[in-house]
Design a protein around this nucleic acid. Structure first.
Lengths: 350, 350
DNA sequence: CAACGTTGATAAATCCGTTAATCGGATCAA
DNA sequence: TTGATCCGATTAACGGATTTATCAACGTTG
């Protein structure tokens, strides 16, 4: 059995209160002389005493632990580096503040309150929180503070803090960039409909709006490639209306795969087709051509979200219950002027 | 203040033992009639009672929580998908077994025993554990079971379980593949020396051995490109001895970057230069050309490691204290026969 | 000398769920 | 009738650290 504070107290001939005070600095009205303190420290060292954090947590009702919820842990490894940056950002702030980080599974709605209200977590960073009534209720009932990341803030303010990037202006930057290069008909690509996230939908809507505003392109269903990743699907869409000279992708991964398929289909990039991604991590440097991408300050957002959560835990009311980070545009090699000969005709599907 | 088991007991007019039994099924010698049980459940529901896990953990001395240590959390987001697969594998097994997952920071050696011995964790998956004397001592002193991943097992058996892939035979597969394609002089690339991991060194040694065995290539310092990721560095190395027709990279990321730099340097891939990576995740599908890569069953290894850890926690002695998973080779488009005109001469560095 | 403050330290309550020990009473077999 | 067993339930100790309340002893001050 492990050495307890009582063992140390007994061995040193003092009370547990004294040991607690000396070793952990806890207890206000407890005073210990320097001599005693030295003895206690020595005995503790000899006995190899390690405080039981479970007991401390129970007593103090604090755990110094924060949870992180991914909306899709199961398909976690499919996406490129977005989640890693997120995790790195959250983790680094927590660790610096001597907090622990617990990864939570995708929770069934029934379980969530049980998991968040069992005393083990002091707060939660919730990635891609959805905005349905059930979730809003949950936010209301949740006994610990929540910071939502990459989730659009609901109309009515809640107790949760929402941190997101400005999808609309990010997409606008991409459209603007393409318009300046001379493009006049562009498309938007995301994975098949069932998997789309709130972020993705926001970006798609912004695409329609910006394309209309900046290049007079009327919204058209064909403008959106909802895609299963496979070559025939891409080739089919391309053949159906080959007038596009550029594609904006909702994410890095979509863009990376599209680069690959387009190349396989015989297109020369970026001369035949310009491609823009979204996220701009190190991944963009490793595609061929290197991927022009809307940049989202993921790591910074994660750090901000986590710091805000730590403040909430300490009872500090945040200045903003919703903060939107601006996006940038990292121009790399996957975008250029449209083909001088005009948009390309159909290409082979194999 | 939160509702406690005592509140429920009082409201239902029964003892806390009865409530504990009914709601959590704990306590052997406690018996409750169905009628009472129903009442208790109803009251608990009404009061919105949620058990305090801290108290339970303290009493039972169990937390159902496992820790995961990355050796380099700080540079976590730099590598491609390896860590995500690892995390996904560990997490999925834990969640299925109703365990929680805590990510631990890079620990100073002083802190480690404190963190692992404070009662909060029942076991640890330790990624890329090193094999120095200090660590072996730590394994010995650690009060909870450890499973090491992607770490070579020490000569003397320890209490920890070691799970790794067969780096040597993996590299051999790559060399064999290249030899069959007709290559006779190949190189090995990894990031700059200071950042190399045990895994990387094992692979490099295996490269020398296999190249000698399978194509009679005598080990030569120039065979190894220890690289800072930048184009001039690559171009410089290439110019210094342009006789190589293929490069095996220690990791996916190295390979991806190499593909990019080689393309920038004007090489045509794979015709001018064949490239093989190591890990074979979805990332390999998004490079151009798609990356031929040694495959390591990361997810499977992570699952095995985690299951083994859960068994250890339950006191089951594992069958093997060291398990090596075989590697495979996923041939994609980045490897082909060497140039028929013989190895290429120097190429431009910009 | 009384009143008061300070130092050094302890006892005991507390956090909240778990569980071994126990108990009254009913049932049943010998 | 006695003893054994089972049912339904409670009591109280327990896990290990924290913290409030309290106290003795001693010194200071007016």
């Amino acid at each position: 059995m492990a050495v307890t504070i009582r063992d140390v107290a007994k061995a040193a001939g003092v009370s547990t209160a004294a040991v607690s005070k000396v070793l952990h600095g806890r207890g206000n009205s407890v005073r210990v002389s320097d001599v005693r303190a030295g003895q206690i420290r020595e005995i503790a060292e000899q006995l190899n005493y390690r405080p039981n954090v479970l007991a401390r947590n129970l007593r103090t009702q604090r755990t110094h632990t924060v949870g992180l919820i991914f909306e899709n842990f199961g398909s976690f490894a499919a996406g490129p580096l977005y989640y890693m940056h997120l995790l790195e950002g959250v983790g680094s702030v927590l660790f610096k503040n001597h907090y622990r980080l617990t990864i939570l599974p995708e929770l069934l709605h029934d379980d969530i309150l049980g998991s968040l209200g069992d005393g083990q977590l002091e707060g939660v960073v919730w990635c891609k929180l959805t905005r349905d009534a059930q979730t809003l209720q949950l936010i209301h009932d949740c006994p610990i503070p929540i910071v939502a990341m990459n989730a659009p803030a609901p109309a009515e303010p809640t107790d949760a803090v929402f941190v997101a990037c400005d999808n609309a202006s990010g997409v606008r930057l991409a459209v603007e960039h393409l318009a300046k290069l001379g493009h006049r008909k562009i498309a938007f690509a995301h994975e098949i409909q069932e998997l789309t996230s709130p972020d993705c939908l926001e970006r798609r809507d912004a695409f329609h709006a910006s394309a209309k505003e900046l290049m007079g392109q009327e919204p058209n269903p064909a403008d959106v490639l909802a895609w299963d990743w496979h070559l025939p699907e891409f080739a089919g869409w391309w053949k159906s209306d080959p007038g596009y000279t550029a594609i904006i992708c909702w994410s890095e991964r979509t863009a990376g795969t599209l680069i690959n398929r387009a190349t396989e289909a015989g297109l020369k990039l970026p001369e035949d087709l310009s491609i823009v991604g979204f996220d701009s991590t190190a991944y963009c440097e490793t595609t061929t051509p290197r991927l022009t991408s809307v940049s989202q300050p993921i790591s910074e957002m994660a750090r901000y979200a986590t710091n805000t959560l730590l403040n909430l835990i300490q009872g500090k009311r945040p200045e903003n219950f919703s903060l939107t980070f601006p996006c940038g545009l990292d121009v790399r090699d996957s975008t250029t002027c449209p083909p001088p000969t005009g948009p390309l005709g159909p290409v082979s599907s194999e």
